[in-house]
Nucleic acid binder design. Structure first.
Lengths: 129, 129
DNA sequence: GCTAATGTATTACGATCGTAGTACAATGTT
DNA sequence: AACATTGTACTACGATCGTAATACATTAGC
């Protein structure tokens, strides 16, 4: 289901976080779905269980997963019932980074918006509620 | 001119990179402007010259600064005469991150675009060429 | 209530990272 | 040509990070 390469420079647990997040956003993993157990995934990927556990733990802290012993780890059903305020707060750093890098690269805001929309469309992300 | 706090968790050289980039994007530092010398800035901020040098070096590698011994360090005059292709390539990771995090947080593309525009306006970034 | 499977916590250790100390190299100025 | 000031390179070392090894805690299922 997942795949990691230890030589890529990117820490394994982050590769996992990225891939799991991606699987959730693309709908491959839906709320309520069960993820592989820590040990099973560790065996499959030939990595240490702790590394898997770390990825799961961080995603749980971010409110994306839900774990409990003996049951396993699942995609959280109600994505965070987070306040809009909180969601905006978490999003802001990513907006800031894009603007900072974009302006340094000489892009105008309009161009950033266009690129954003284009990429979103390519990735098949929903555009409206 | 700049200010760093060694206890902030964020590495000092990155704080510098961030601030210098910000100064360039906001026009506080214009192409051709001279930056403080490595040693002078190190004294002002009470940090090691090497830390300043590292920030300058990385920014030079990114094409934002220009250094040479005895002359000093300057904001590069022609922002990178980079091909549009290359600029887009460098921008993409930031777009991807925003979309990934945004969708996980439950934002629609439209909402991301709105947030992007709003932040840009607040920061006074130019909207058109 | 036992048990086995699951997540969690603790510890350890090598690798990388951030910074400092020091020496070197390049070059405008005189 | 000498010099002084600038950026650069090398080395070292403590701190943090990523991963592994191991042990512990929890709980669904019998």
């Amino acid at each position: 289901m997942f795949h990691v390469s230890p030589e890529s420079g990117e820490p394994i647990y982050r590769q996992l976080i990225r891939q799991i997040k991606h699987a959730i956003t693309t709908g491959v993993l839906k709320p309520g779905n069960k993820l592989p157990t820590v040990r099973q995934l560790a065996v499959d990927l030939v990595i240490n269980p702790n590394t898997v556990a770390r990825a799961y733990r961080e995603l749980e802290q971010r409110g994306l997963l839900e774990s409990s012993p003996r049951r396993g780890t699942f995609v959280k059903v109600s994505p965070p019932g987070m306040l809009l305020e909180e969601r905006r707060r978490r999003l802001q750093p990513y907006i800031d980074s894009l603007i900072a890098e974009g302006t340094v690269l000489g892009f105008t805001v309009d161009e950033l918006v266009v690129s954003l929309g284009k990429t979103a469309r390519e990735k098949g992300v929903r555009g409206e509620k």
